[in-house]
């Protein structure tokens, strides 16, 4: 299962808001695209609040203000172990030429 492609552009405002929390950034970190989730309509739901277990963020090229990315979130895996449900989902961003620029993989658990 995956979301529709959503175009997200990094704005100066986005970076300034990020820096209010994380301080001045010399270069935008690979964790930055995780805030793109707020612009993406993820169609699947969790029964209860998901808890973050593990996160991997990989950036293949530098992220910068003014750059636009086609973002897709994919639900890679859902596993049930007893009363727990384990979700693995990926947020992948492609540049306008279609090359992958970043990949953020989240592992979540739902009680």
């Amino acid at each position: 299962m995956k979301t529709e492609k959503t175009l997200v552009t990094i704005t100066e405002e986005m970076v300034l808001n990020y820096e209010v929390i994380f301080g001045k950034q010399n270069k935008l970190p690979p964790t930055f695209p995780m805030i793109f989730y707020r612009y993406i309509n993820v169609p699947w739901d969790y029964k209860t609040a998901p808890i973050h277990r593990k996160q991997t963020c990989v950036c293949h090229s530098e992220l910068s203000i003014g750059e636009s990315y086609h973002c897709v979130v994919t639900l890679d895996q859902v596993k049930q172990k007893g009363k727990y449900m384990f979700y693995t989902q990926s947020l992948v961003g492609y540049n306008l030429e279609g090359s992958e620029c970043f990949r953020c993989v989240s592992e979540l658990v739902v009680h």
Binding site: F22, K27, P30
Partner: peptide
């Protein structure tokens, strides 16, 4: 948490290095 811990790499990023991968287990 992940974003705040990145400050620890600032001595490298200030010298022109870039964080390409970051993985964390909570």
């Amino acid at each position: 948490t992940m974003g705040l811990t990145l400050e620890i790499a600032s001595s490298f990023t200030e010298k022109g290095m870039r964080i390409s991968t970051y993985e964390m287990q909570f």
